[in-house]
Amino acid sequence: MKITRKSIAIIVATAAASSMLSFAAPVAGAATNTAVTSSRSFPKVNAPRKNLLAESTSTDVEKNSNWGGLGSMSVPKTKSTAEKDAAAKAKQEEQARVAAAAAAQQAEAASRSSARTSTSTSTNTSTTTTEQFTVTPPNAKTAAALVSYANQFIGQVPYIYGGSTTSGWDCSGFVMYVYAQFGISLPHSSGAQASAGTAVASLAEAQPGDIIANSAHAGIYIGNNMVVNALNPSKGTTTTAVSVAFTGSYSIRRLL
């Protein structure tokens, strides 16, 4: 009985060993008949990095890499304290320069205005002195006195469009100024002055002191077919023949 069990154990062990050998043989055969190769997933590193905590200074990125729009983000730029201080100082200097220039211009304008408008009146001689010349006020409210007064401005006052003072005037401004010294108020318009006062029929009937005017020009008749007038910027206040000062029709008006 004991022999039989021993024999069975030997037979079973032999069969198991044979089975294992039969399984290993095909595997070995397959290994010898088929070549199996492998490659590294990462590039070979020739020199190992010594300092693993050092910050990377450059990165190679493929041109077609997509970073989700991060590459085109606009990052606000900030200025250093020194840059801010320099900008503030430059701004203050510019403001000071502009203020100084404005003050200089104002002072210059005030000086010119004062020079133009300054007058001194002498109570002893009853004359008015302007910046450039002396004007004797009218001594009577007559046409002859008006012509005498108007002739004082010949060659003295420039022609300035829109002006109506001795600093400069245009044609109607001159007539308006002269007549104002005789208590007669006129509009600052040659066309309007052409309808003031009483009409005179013709130049042959005109008297010194009459106004000759149309829509383009105005002057004061002084006799002998002449007028005193502010003619133009090149001539200023001057005497002119009626035929030269006026083209076309005109009106003659009498106020004194």
Rank of each mutant, 00 (worst) to 15 (best):
L231F: 13
S202Q: 02
P137T: 01
S56V: 12
S189A: 08
A196R: 01
Q132N: 15
G69D: 02
A143Q: 01
A150M: 05
Q132T: 15
E83V: 12
S167R: 00
A30T: 10
S41W: 01
G191C: 00
A15F: 08
L146W: 02
I211R: 01
V75G: 01
S120I: 06
M226Y: 01
G219T: 03
T166R: 04
V228M: 02
S39T: 12
E205K: 10
R112D: 14
E62Y: 13
M73W: 04
L203E: 07
T123I: 15
D60G: 13
T37D: 12
T239H: 05
K63F: 08
T198I: 07
K91R: 11
L70V: 12
K2C: 11
A196V: 15
A96H: 04
T59R: 12
T238L: 08
A13M: 02
G191V: 01
L231P: 10
E131L: 14
P137L: 11
G209H: 02
I184K: 11
S249P: 08
N225M: 03
V27G: 05
A145H: 04
S65P: 07
T247P: 02
A15L: 14
S126G: 13
R254L: 04
K89Y: 08
A199H: 05
N151M: 15
S167H: 07
T134N: 09
V147T: 10
P43L: 04
T4V: 15
A101Q: 12
V227Y: 03
T32I: 10
A115R: 07
A150N: 04
K141Q: 13
K6C: 13
A101S: 09
C171P: 09
I212E: 01
E94A: 14
G68T: 06
S41C: 06
G163I: 03
A47P: 01
Q193P: 11
Y177W: 12
A88D: 11
L203P: 05
I154K: 10
Y250P: 03
S167N: 12
